[in-house]
Amino acid sequence: METLITLLVGVLVSTATYLLLSKNLIRIVLGTAILSHAVHLLLMTMGGLKGGSVPILDDGTETYTDALPQALILTAIVIGFAVTAFFLVLVYRTYQSVGTDNLNEMRGSKDE
C-alpha cells in the first residue's frame, strides 16, 4: 500500500511542477495546492500506514497507532487552505488591476 501511495505522490509532484512552470497565475496557485497535498500524502506515508488501536493504557492491546503525524497533517491542511485562499484573492485582485493573468504580459514582454 505504501508503494502505491508513494507512486501517487510522485505523480502529484510532477503534475504540480508542470503547473508551477506555466505562465498562468491560476495554474501556479493550483500547482502550489497540489504540491502541498502531495507533501501531506508523503508525510502520512512516512508516518506509517499500519493499523492499531488508540493509545489508551487501560486496554489490553499491544500495537498502537501514532496520532502525531495525523495531527501535524491536519494542521498543515488548514494552513494550506488558508494560504491557497489568500493566493486566489491575490490573483483575483491582480487580474482586476492589471487586466491579465499571464506573467509575460504583466512583465511587459510581447513574447508568447
Rank of each mutant, 00 (worst) to 15 (best):
L4S: 11
L4A: 13
I5T: 08
T6A: 11
L7N: 14
L7W: 13
L8T: 08
G10H: 05
V11R: 09
V11M: 13
V11K: 04
V11G: 12
L12S: 06
L12I: 00
L12E: 00
A16H: 13
T17A: 13
Y18E: 05
L19C: 09
L19E: 03
L20W: 07
L20V: 10
L21E: 05
L21G: 02
S22G: 14
K23T: 10
N24G: 10
L25H: 02
I26C: 07
R27H: 10
R27S: 11
I28D: 01
I28Y: 05
L30H: 03
T32Q: 15
A33C: 12
S36I: 10
H37K: 13
V39D: 09
H40I: 09
H40A: 14
L41C: 12
L41R: 04
L43M: 06
L43A: 12
M44A: 15
M44R: 08
T45D: 08
T45W: 04
G47I: 01
G47N: 01
G51N: 04
G52R: 00
G52P: 01
G52I: 01
S53I: 01
V54M: 06
I56C: 00
I56N: 08
D58I: 09
D59C: 15
G60T: 07
G60M: 00
T61F: 13
E62D: 13
E62N: 07
Y64F: 12
T65I: 08
T65P: 02
D66V: 10
D66N: 11
D66K: 07
A67W: 07
A67I: 09
A67P: 14
L68H: 02
P69L: 01
P69C: 02
Q70P: 00
A71G: 05
A71R: 11
L72A: 11
L72H: 08
L72I: 04
L72T: 02
I73G: 00
I73M: 05
L74W: 13
T75G: 15
T75A: 14
T75V: 15
A76H: 07
A76L: 05
V78K: 03
V78P: 05
V78I: 13
G80Q: 11
G80S: 13
F81P: 02
A82N: 00
A82P: 00
V83K: 06
T84R: 11
F86I: 11
V89L: 09
L90G: 12
L90N: 14
V91Q: 04
V91C: 06
R93Y: 07
T94N: 06
T94Q: 08
T94W: 06
T94P: 13
T94S: 09
T94V: 12
Y95S: 14
Q96A: 09
S97W: 07
V98S: 01
G99K: 03
G99M: 04
T100F: 02
D101Q: 12
D101R: 11
N102V: 09
N104C: 11
N104W: 06
M106C: 08
M106A: 06
M106P: 05
M106I: 15
G108D: 03
S109H: 03
K110Q: 13
D111Y: 08
E112N: 08
E112Y: 15
E112H: 11
